[in-house]
Amino acid sequence: MWALFLRDLRLSMRAGGGALIGVLFFLAVVAVIPFGVGPDLKLLSLIGPAILWIGALLAALLGLDRLFQHDREDGSLDIMLMQETPMFLTVLVKCLAHWAGTGLPLIIASPVLGLLMNIKGVAMLAVAATLLVGTPAITFIGAVGAAVSVALPRGGVLVSVLVLPLAVPVLIFGVSAVYGAVEDPAPFTPPFLILCAITLFFSVLGPLAASAALRASAD
Protein backbone atom coordinates (compact mmCIF):
# COMPACT_ATOMS: atom_id res chain seq x y z
CA MET A 1 0.00 0.00 0.00
CA TRP A 2 2.90 2.30 0.78
CA ALA A 3 4.16 1.52 -2.74
CA LEU A 4 0.85 2.73 -4.22
CA PHE A 5 1.00 5.93 -2.16
CA LEU A 6 4.54 6.66 -3.33
CA ARG A 7 3.72 5.86 -6.96
CA ASP A 8 0.71 8.19 -7.06
CA LEU A 9 2.61 10.94 -5.25
CA ARG A 10 5.49 10.58 -7.69
CA LEU A 11 3.09 10.76 -10.64
CA SER A 12 1.54 14.00 -9.36
CA MET A 13 5.02 15.54 -9.07
CA ARG A 14 6.22 14.47 -12.52
CA ALA A 15 5.60 16.46 -15.68
CA GLY A 16 1.88 16.72 -16.40
CA GLY A 17 0.98 15.89 -12.81
CA GLY A 18 -1.68 17.76 -10.89
CA ALA A 19 0.40 19.33 -8.10
CA LEU A 20 1.67 22.42 -9.91
CA ILE A 21 -1.51 22.95 -11.95
CA GLY A 22 -3.62 23.15 -8.80
CA VAL A 23 -1.32 25.69 -7.13
CA LEU A 24 -1.16 27.83 -10.28
CA PHE A 25 -4.95 27.81 -10.58
CA PHE A 26 -5.25 28.77 -6.89
CA LEU A 27 -2.79 31.62 -7.47
CA ALA A 28 -4.73 32.80 -10.52
CA VAL A 29 -8.08 32.86 -8.69
CA VAL A 30 -6.76 34.68 -5.61
CA ALA A 31 -4.47 37.07 -7.49
CA VAL A 32 -7.24 38.57 -9.67
CA ILE A 33 -9.61 39.30 -6.77
CA PRO A 34 -7.78 42.44 -5.49
CA PHE A 35 -7.81 43.81 -9.03
CA GLY A 36 -11.52 43.22 -9.31
CA VAL A 37 -12.52 44.41 -5.85
CA GLY A 38 -10.18 47.39 -5.68
CA PRO A 39 -7.47 48.42 -3.21
CA ASP A 40 -9.72 48.62 -0.15
CA LEU A 41 -7.52 46.83 2.42
CA LYS A 42 -10.31 46.54 4.99
CA LEU A 43 -12.69 44.94 2.52
CA LEU A 44 -9.97 42.60 1.26
CA SER A 45 -9.08 41.34 4.71
CA LEU A 46 -12.79 40.90 5.41
CA ILE A 47 -13.52 38.72 2.36
CA GLY A 48 -9.97 37.25 2.21
CA PRO A 49 -10.54 34.00 4.14
CA ALA A 50 -13.66 33.20 2.08
CA ILE A 51 -11.80 33.90 -1.18
CA LEU A 52 -8.91 31.67 -0.12
CA TRP A 53 -11.33 28.87 0.74
CA ILE A 54 -13.22 29.21 -2.57
CA GLY A 55 -9.94 29.25 -4.48
CA ALA A 56 -8.68 26.17 -2.68
CA LEU A 57 -12.00 24.37 -3.23
CA LEU A 58 -11.98 25.05 -6.97
CA ALA A 59 -8.30 24.13 -7.27
CA ALA A 60 -8.94 20.87 -5.40
CA LEU A 61 -11.85 20.05 -7.73
CA LEU A 62 -9.70 20.73 -10.78
CA GLY A 63 -7.52 17.64 -10.58
CA LEU A 64 -10.11 15.18 -9.27
CA ASP A 65 -10.95 13.54 -12.58
CA ARG A 66 -7.38 12.24 -12.78
CA LEU A 67 -7.86 10.16 -9.68
CA PHE A 68 -8.92 6.97 -11.49
CA GLN A 69 -9.10 7.88 -15.17
CA HIS A 70 -5.43 7.33 -16.03
CA ASP A 71 -5.36 4.06 -14.11
CA ARG A 72 -8.37 2.89 -16.05
CA GLU A 73 -6.98 3.94 -19.42
CA ASP A 74 -3.69 2.10 -18.98
CA GLY A 75 -5.24 -1.02 -17.46
CA SER A 76 -3.82 -0.56 -13.93
CA LEU A 77 -7.31 -0.32 -12.47
CA ASP A 78 -8.23 -3.82 -13.71
CA ILE A 79 -5.23 -5.27 -11.93
CA MET A 80 -6.03 -3.35 -8.74
CA LEU A 81 -9.63 -4.62 -8.81
CA MET A 82 -8.42 -8.21 -8.98
CA GLN A 83 -6.24 -8.16 -5.88
CA GLU A 84 -6.90 -9.75 -2.54
CA THR A 85 -6.45 -6.30 -0.98
CA PRO A 86 -9.91 -4.77 -0.50
CA MET A 87 -10.67 -2.12 -3.09
CA PHE A 88 -11.77 0.17 -0.25
CA LEU A 89 -8.20 0.29 1.03
CA THR A 90 -6.75 0.84 -2.45
CA VAL A 91 -9.13 3.76 -3.05
CA LEU A 92 -8.40 5.22 0.40
CA VAL A 93 -4.66 5.15 -0.25
CA LYS A 94 -5.14 6.65 -3.71
CA CYS A 95 -7.20 9.47 -2.14
CA LEU A 96 -4.56 10.15 0.50
CA ALA A 97 -1.83 10.23 -2.16
CA HIS A 98 -3.95 12.52 -4.31
CA TRP A 99 -4.49 14.84 -1.37
CA ALA A 100 -0.79 14.83 -0.48
CA GLY A 101 0.04 15.60 -4.11
CA THR A 102 -2.55 18.30 -4.82
CA GLY A 103 -4.17 19.40 -1.54
CA LEU A 104 -1.08 19.82 0.60
CA PRO A 105 0.65 22.21 -1.86
CA LEU A 106 -2.47 24.42 -1.71
CA ILE A 107 -2.22 24.64 2.08
CA ILE A 108 1.47 25.46 1.87
CA ALA A 109 0.73 28.17 -0.71
CA SER A 110 -2.20 29.67 1.23
CA PRO A 111 -0.17 31.93 3.64
CA VAL A 112 1.68 33.46 0.67
CA LEU A 113 -1.58 34.11 -1.16
CA GLY A 114 -3.05 35.45 2.09
CA LEU A 115 -0.63 38.37 1.77
CA LEU A 116 -2.42 39.40 -1.42
CA MET A 117 -5.69 39.54 0.50
CA ASN A 118 -4.25 41.46 3.48
CA ILE A 119 -4.99 38.62 5.89
CA LYS A 120 -3.34 38.99 9.31
CA GLY A 121 -1.50 36.38 11.39
CA VAL A 122 -4.26 34.69 13.40
CA ALA A 123 -6.71 34.59 10.50
CA MET A 124 -3.99 33.17 8.24
CA LEU A 125 -3.22 30.45 10.75
CA ALA A 126 -6.93 29.65 10.97
CA VAL A 127 -7.25 29.46 7.17
CA ALA A 128 -4.30 27.05 6.95
CA ALA A 129 -5.64 24.92 9.82
CA THR A 130 -9.17 24.69 8.40
CA LEU A 131 -7.81 23.90 4.94
CA LEU A 132 -5.66 21.17 6.48
CA VAL A 133 -8.65 19.38 8.00
CA GLY A 134 -11.17 20.36 5.29
CA THR A 135 -9.48 19.60 1.97
CA PRO A 136 -9.22 15.83 2.56
CA ALA A 137 -13.02 15.76 2.70
CA ILE A 138 -13.14 17.35 -0.78
CA THR A 139 -10.85 14.61 -2.08
CA PHE A 140 -12.93 11.83 -0.50
CA ILE A 141 -16.20 13.28 -1.85
CA GLY A 142 -14.53 13.84 -5.20
CA ALA A 143 -13.41 10.22 -5.33
CA VAL A 144 -17.06 9.18 -5.62
CA GLY A 145 -17.63 11.58 -8.52
CA ALA A 146 -14.40 10.49 -10.18
CA ALA A 147 -15.35 6.82 -9.84
CA VAL A 148 -18.86 7.34 -11.21
CA SER A 149 -17.61 9.25 -14.25
CA VAL A 150 -14.49 7.14 -14.80
CA ALA A 151 -15.86 5.51 -17.94
CA LEU A 152 -16.83 8.81 -19.57
CA PRO A 153 -14.40 10.61 -21.83
CA ARG A 154 -13.65 14.12 -20.53
CA GLY A 155 -15.58 13.56 -17.34
CA GLY A 156 -13.73 16.39 -15.59
CA VAL A 157 -16.51 18.98 -15.68
CA LEU A 158 -19.09 16.38 -14.71
CA VAL A 159 -17.04 15.44 -11.66
CA SER A 160 -16.96 19.08 -10.51
CA VAL A 161 -20.71 19.47 -10.98
CA LEU A 162 -21.48 16.20 -9.18
CA VAL A 163 -19.17 16.97 -6.31
CA LEU A 164 -19.82 20.67 -5.76
CA PRO A 165 -23.16 20.40 -3.86
CA LEU A 166 -21.67 17.85 -1.47
CA ALA A 167 -18.59 20.00 -0.95
CA VAL A 168 -20.60 23.09 0.01
CA PRO A 169 -20.89 22.12 3.73
CA VAL A 170 -17.11 21.80 3.87
CA LEU A 171 -16.82 25.36 2.53
CA ILE A 172 -19.45 26.72 4.94
CA PHE A 173 -17.92 25.25 8.08
CA GLY A 174 -14.36 26.00 6.93
CA VAL A 175 -15.07 29.68 6.40
CA SER A 176 -17.20 30.06 9.53
CA ALA A 177 -14.42 28.52 11.64
CA VAL A 178 -11.97 31.08 10.23
CA TYR A 179 -14.33 33.97 11.05
CA GLY A 180 -14.80 32.42 14.49
CA ALA A 181 -11.07 32.69 15.07
CA VAL A 182 -10.99 36.39 14.13
CA GLU A 183 -14.29 37.93 15.20
CA ASP A 184 -15.12 37.93 18.87
CA PRO A 185 -18.68 36.69 19.37
CA ALA A 186 -18.44 33.91 16.79
CA PRO A 187 -16.98 30.62 18.12
CA PHE A 188 -14.06 28.80 16.46
CA THR A 189 -14.20 25.33 18.00
CA PRO A 190 -17.71 24.08 17.04
CA PRO A 191 -17.46 24.70 13.27
CA PHE A 192 -13.87 23.43 13.30
CA LEU A 193 -14.91 20.19 14.99
CA ILE A 194 -17.84 19.78 12.58
CA LEU A 195 -15.33 20.19 9.75
CA CYS A 196 -13.20 17.42 11.28
CA ALA A 197 -16.31 15.25 11.58
CA ILE A 198 -17.24 15.82 7.93
CA THR A 199 -13.74 14.74 6.87
CA LEU A 200 -13.84 11.61 9.04
CA PHE A 201 -17.32 10.72 7.82
CA PHE A 202 -16.39 11.02 4.15
CA SER A 203 -13.07 9.23 4.67
CA VAL A 204 -15.21 6.12 5.23
CA LEU A 205 -18.18 6.76 2.96
CA GLY A 206 -16.18 8.17 0.01
CA PRO A 207 -13.83 5.21 -0.58
CA LEU A 208 -16.68 2.72 0.06
CA ALA A 209 -18.93 4.34 -2.54
CA ALA A 210 -16.07 4.92 -4.96
CA SER A 211 -14.90 1.29 -4.83
CA ALA A 212 -18.45 0.07 -5.41
CA ALA A 213 -18.77 2.42 -8.40
CA LEU A 214 -15.45 1.25 -9.82
CA ARG A 215 -16.46 -2.40 -9.55
CA ALA A 216 -19.75 -1.72 -11.27
CA SER A 217 -18.15 0.26 -14.09
CA ALA A 218 -15.62 -2.42 -15.05
CA ASP A 219 -16.52 -3.62 -18.52
Binding site: A3, L4, L11, R14, G17, D74, G75, D78, M80
Partner: peptide, 23 residues
Protein backbone atom coordinates in the same frame (compact mmCIF):
# COMPACT_ATOMS: atom_id res chain seq x y z
CA UNK B 1 -5.25 -7.25 -21.14
CA UNK B 2 -4.92 -5.03 -24.18
CA UNK B 3 -3.35 -2.38 -21.98
CA UNK B 4 -0.04 -2.88 -20.28
CA UNK B 5 -0.86 -1.36 -16.90
CA UNK B 6 2.28 0.79 -16.84
CA UNK B 7 2.75 4.53 -16.39
CA UNK B 8 4.58 6.25 -19.26
CA UNK B 9 5.97 8.91 -16.88
CA UNK B 10 7.72 6.40 -14.62
CA UNK B 11 10.80 4.39 -15.52
CA UNK B 12 10.55 0.71 -16.36
CA UNK B 13 12.04 -0.34 -13.03
CA UNK B 14 9.84 2.07 -11.04
CA UNK B 15 6.78 0.59 -12.75
CA UNK B 16 7.79 -3.02 -12.12
CA UNK B 17 8.93 -2.25 -8.60
CA UNK B 18 5.52 -0.80 -7.80
CA UNK B 19 3.62 -3.79 -9.17
CA UNK B 20 5.89 -6.19 -7.34
CA UNK B 21 5.33 -4.45 -4.00
CA UNK B 22 1.62 -4.01 -4.67
CA UNK B 23 0.88 -7.57 -5.75
Amino acid sequence: GHHNGMKPELTVSENLDFWQKFM
